[in-house]
Computed example of a mutant assay.
Amino acid sequence: MSDNDPLSYTGQPERSPLYLLVWDAPNIDMGLGSLLGGRPDAVHRPRFDAVGRWLIDVARDAGDASDASDEGPAPVPEATVFTNVAPGSAEQIRGWVDALRNVGFAVFAKPKLTEDSDVDPDMLAHIRRRRDEGVLDGLVVASADGQNFRELLEELADEIPVTVLGFHEHAHWAVENDTLEFLDLEDIPGVFRAPLPRVNLDSLPDDGAWLQPYRPLSALVR
């Protein structure tokens, strides 16, 4: 494996068992935008230090369980944020990328050259690589809907714990899936500075509520 391998920030495969988090930044942003009815601001963007602490706790709990069954060392938490970089936007997101790296997250950044330049294939490749290395002890996929990951996640759930991290409004397939664990992103302690202004059909206010469209109507003619 080359030190220039674009699928991982490690030159050689990890040898310790890993509890892996992959974060689909474009999809999470889209999901947040649909809940908020507009572009997320600083108050409603997730705190990655809170996500990191949560992942450390999850890996530690998994290690405690393995110690009880005498199955080997505790898994090490590893987290990567996958993101697209639109032309001309590098300077706008440079601070965000540096902040992620300072927290302890790796970042996989890919130019957004066409509509098909998504990071989903790169996320799937990274997950498969860690599995093929024989180090994957647990997996968390953070994505607002995550449908593109469903087949692989259900396959891996036969071998390891698999969690989908997202928003229950957009991830019914995971919420109702008997083989996967689902956790709403807002249920991670401290992940948002203020509660999200969420409205769903099960808990409408007496006066009613406006439900914003997920995309502009003009998208129908693209």
Results as ranks from 00 to 15, higher is better:
Arg47Gln: 13
Arg47Cys: 05
Gly52Leu: 13
Gly52Ser: 13
Gly52Gln: 15
Arg53Lys: 13
Arg53Met: 09
Leu55Pro: 04
Ile56Cys: 08
Ala59Arg: 11
Arg60Val: 11
Ala62Cys: 09
Ala62Phe: 01
Ala62Met: 11
Asp64Gly: 01
Asp67Ser: 14
Asp67Arg: 11
Ser69Gln: 13
Gly72Asp: 04
Gly72Cys: 04
Pro73Ala: 00
Ala74Met: 05
Val76Ser: 06
Pro77Arg: 02
Pro77Phe: 01
Ala79Pro: 02
Ala79Phe: 04
Thr80Ile: 11
Thr80Cys: 12
Val81Lys: 02
Val81Phe: 07
Asn84Glu: 09
Val85Thr: 12
Ala90Gln: 11
Ala90Ser: 12
Glu91Ala: 14
Glu91Asp: 13
Gln92Lys: 14
Arg94Met: 06
Arg94Ser: 12
Trp96Gly: 00
Val97Glu: 12
Arg101Phe: 01
Asn102Ala: 15
Val103Trp: 04
Val103Leu: 02
Phe105Tyr: 13
Val107Thr: 09
Phe108His: 13
Ala109Ile: 04
Lys112Arg: 12
Lys112Phe: 14
Leu113Cys: 03
Asp116Ala: 10
Asp118Cys: 07
Asp122Glu: 10
Asp122Arg: 01
Met123Gly: 04
Ala125Lys: 03
His126Arg: 15
Ile127Gln: 00
Arg129Pro: 00
Arg131Gly: 00
Arg131Tyr: 10
Asp132Trp: 04
Glu133Leu: 05
Val135Gly: 02
Val135Phe: 04
Gly138Gln: 06
Leu139Asn: 01
Leu139Phe: 05
Val140Asp: 02
Val141Ile: 15
Val141Phe: 11
Ala142His: 08
Ala142Lys: 00
Ala142Phe: 06
Ser143Gln: 03
Ala144Gln: 10
Asp145Gly: 04
